[in-house]
Amino acid sequence: MIQEPALPPGWEMKYTSEGVRYFVDHNTRTTTFKDPRPGFESGTKQGSPGAYDR
């Protein structure tokens, strides 16, 4: 089984109701579709995929 590298501290991976993966940075309280791990580009969309909830 291939294991992906861990997200940076304070980051979480979530999915929209449509199943699109996005990332929550709890450090800055922002969201992005761009994977924060080096070498992982998950898309070019920018903006908030939804309300920030902790």
Rank of each mutant, 00 (worst) to 15 (best):
N27G: 06
G10P: 00
R29Q: 08
T28N: 05
F33D: 04
T16S: 08
Q3K: 15
Q46H: 11
G43E: 10
L7P: 03
F23R: 00
R21S: 07
Y15S: 08
V24I: 07
P49W: 07
T32C: 01
D53Q: 11
G19V: 00
T31R: 02
G10C: 01
S17L: 06
Y22F: 05
M1Q: 15
M13G: 06
D53H: 15
Y52M: 14
K14S: 06
K45N: 10
N27H: 06
D25P: 00
Q46G: 13
T30E: 05
M13H: 05
T28I: 03
Q46R: 12
E12H: 02
P9C: 05
M13Q: 08
H26G: 03
E4M: 07
G19D: 04
D25S: 01
E41Y: 14
T31D: 01
V20G: 08
D35R: 06
V24R: 03
T30W: 02
L7N: 03
K45L: 10
G43M: 08
T44H: 07
P5A: 09
G50Q: 07
K14E: 05
R37G: 05
T30R: 05
M1E: 09
F40T: 14
H26S: 05
F33N: 03
R54G: 14
A6F: 13
G10I: 00
W11G: 01
D25C: 02
P36S: 00
S17R: 07
G47N: 06
T44E: 12
T30G: 03
M1I: 12
R54N: 01
A51D: 13
G43V: 08
G39I: 15
M1H: 15
Y52L: 12
Y52V: 13
D25M: 00
F33K: 03
E41C: 01
V24G: 00
T44F: 03
H26D: 02
Q3W: 08
P49N: 14
A6H: 15
G10K: 11
S17G: 11
G19W: 02
E4C: 13
E12Q: 15
E41R: 09
A6D: 15
E12T: 05
G50K: 13
Q3R: 10
N27T: 05
Y22W: 02
V24T: 05
G39K: 15
P49V: 11
F23T: 00
G47I: 12
Y52R: 13
R29P: 02
F33G: 02
F33L: 04
G19A: 06
T31N: 03
G19Y: 04
P9D: 15
K45R: 10
D35Y: 05
S42R: 11
R37Q: 03
R21V: 08
R54E: 10
R21W: 03
Q3L: 10
G19Q: 05
E41I: 11
V20N: 12
K34D: 07
D25L: 00
V24E: 07
G10N: 15
T32D: 01
V24A: 08
T30I: 10
R21K: 09
S48D: 14
S17E: 14
T16M: 03
V24Y: 05
G39D: 11
P38Q: 03
T16P: 00
P49K: 11
N27W: 02
A6R: 15
G50N: 13
T16H: 02
P38R: 14
Y22I: 02
V24W: 03
V24K: 02
K45C: 11
G50L: 11
Y22E: 01
D53E: 14
T32I: 01
P9F: 14
K34Y: 15
D53M: 13
K14F: 13
F33P: 01
S48K: 14
S42Q: 12
P38G: 12
Y15D: 02
V24N: 03
P5S: 15
T16Q: 02
E41Q: 10
R54V: 10
I2Q: 11
R21L: 09
E41P: 07
G50R: 11
N27F: 07
V24P: 00
P8N: 08
T28R: 03
G47F: 06
A51E: 14
Y22C: 02
T30Y: 04
G47D: 15
T31P: 00
S17C: 13
N27A: 05
P9S: 13
N27K: 06
F23P: 01
M13N: 04
L7D: 02
T31S: 05
Y15K: 12
S48T: 15
E12I: 02
P49E: 14
Y52K: 10
T16K: 01
P9A: 13
T30H: 05
K45E: 11
K45D: 12
P5V: 15
E41T: 08
Y15G: 02
R54W: 12
P8G: 05
P8A: 05
E4D: 10
F23N: 00
M1R: 09
Q46P: 06
K34V: 15
A6T: 05
A6P: 07
P8V: 01
D35E: 06
D35I: 10
P36Y: 00
G10A: 04
V20W: 06
R29Y: 05
G10L: 06
G50T: 13
P49Q: 12
K34A: 08
F40K: 12
G43C: 07
F23K: 01
R21H: 11
S48I: 11
Y52H: 14
G39R: 14
K45M: 14
I2V: 07
A51H: 04
G50F: 12
G39S: 14
M1N: 15
T32P: 00
S42M: 10
M13D: 08
P36M: 01
P49M: 12
W11A: 01
E41V: 10
K45A: 09
G50H: 07
R37M: 04
R37D: 04
F40H: 11
V20K: 09
F23G: 01
G19E: 03
D53R: 05
K34H: 09
N27E: 05
G39P: 13
R29K: 10
G43A: 11
F40E: 14
T30K: 06
P36H: 01
G19H: 05
D25F: 00
F23L: 00
Q3H: 08
M1V: 08
G50W: 07
T44G: 13
Q3S: 13
Q46K: 12
E41D: 14
Y52N: 05
P5H: 14
T16N: 07
R37P: 06
G43P: 12
S42N: 10
V24D: 01
R21T: 12
L7K: 01
P9E: 14
A51P: 08
Y52S: 14
E18W: 01
Y22K: 01
G50Y: 04
V24M: 06
R21P: 11
D53S: 10
M1S: 09
E12G: 04
R37N: 06
P38C: 09
V24C: 04
Q3A: 10
M1A: 08
G19M: 07
P36D: 00
A6G: 12
K14H: 08
V20S: 09
S17P: 10
H26L: 04
E41G: 11
F23V: 00
G43H: 12
F40P: 13
P5Q: 15
I2G: 07
K45G: 10
F23E: 00
V20R: 08
T32E: 00
W11K: 01
R29A: 07
G10D: 08
G50V: 12
L7Q: 02
G47W: 06
P9H: 14
S48Q: 12
R37C: 06
E12V: 08
E12K: 02
D25W: 00
Q3I: 15
T32V: 02
D53K: 14
P5I: 06
S17F: 05
P36V: 01
E18D: 10
Y15W: 10
G39Y: 09
E41F: 05
P9M: 15
R29I: 02
I2Y: 04
G19K: 11
